[in-house]
Computed example of a mutant assay.
Amino acid sequence: MMATELKETVTYEETLGQLDIRLGRVVGVALEPSAPKPAYRLTVDFGKYGRRVSVGRFTQHTLEELLGQQVVGVLNFEARQVGEVMSEVLILGVQVPGAASGEATFLTPERDAKLGSKVF
């Protein structure tokens, strides 16, 4: 199978420099029945940046596995309606091998770090 081509080179200022990506901790998690595909509603604490709600397809994890995990989120994307919920932050993840398209596992630091820390 041929790998997908890499995208063109861009500058930090054009891309990552415009995003506010920070570390948070999942403090609440529940199934979100109104989402069009199986998903969880996560409440994530970003320290001094407050708590934000995210709807994501992290359903390969149990509710118990997600609760308390440190996750990485983009705080300055526009909020998005997912089912009946406004998803205020995009939690970053990667595709779970063998799972349905879009089902993900979350990105997390190797060690606990301060909530609200900027990803760089």
Rank of each mutant, 00 (worst) to 15 (best):
A39W: 01
A3I: 07
E8N: 07
G24W: 02
K48T: 14
K7R: 12
S101A: 15
Y49M: 05
L6M: 10
G56N: 01
E78G: 05
E103H: 07
A3K: 14
K114R: 14
A39D: 00
T62S: 15
Q18T: 14
F106Y: 15
E8T: 11
V10S: 07
L6A: 11
T62D: 10
G83Q: 13
E13N: 06
A113C: 04
S54M: 02
F77M: 13
V119H: 04
A79G: 12
Q81G: 06
Y12L: 11
T11K: 12
L75I: 11
G73Q: 00
T9L: 12
L6K: 14
A3L: 12
E8K: 14
A39F: 02
K118M: 09
V55L: 06
F58Q: 04
T9M: 09
G47D: 04
G83N: 09
K37D: 10
A3Q: 08
V85D: 05
L115C: 05
F120S: 11
Q18S: 05
G28D: 06
A3Y: 05
Q70E: 12
T9Y: 06
E110S: 14
D20F: 02
T105L: 11
S117R: 04
L107A: 11
M2K: 09
E5H: 09
V89C: 08
P36A: 09
L42P: 00
D45N: 13
G116S: 07
G47H: 02
L16I: 12
R22E: 02
Q95N: 10
L31D: 15
Q60N: 13
Q69H: 08
Q81Y: 01
N76R: 08
Q81H: 10
Q60F: 07
F77G: 00
A79S: 15
V27E: 11
M86C: 00
A35P: 04
E13Y: 03
L107H: 06
E8G: 07
V55T: 04
G116D: 03
S54A: 15
G47A: 09
V53K: 03
D112A: 12
G83T: 12
V94R: 14
T11Q: 05
V55W: 05
L6R: 12
F46S: 00
E84M: 09
P33C: 13
G28Q: 00
E84S: 14
L31E: 15
G17I: 04
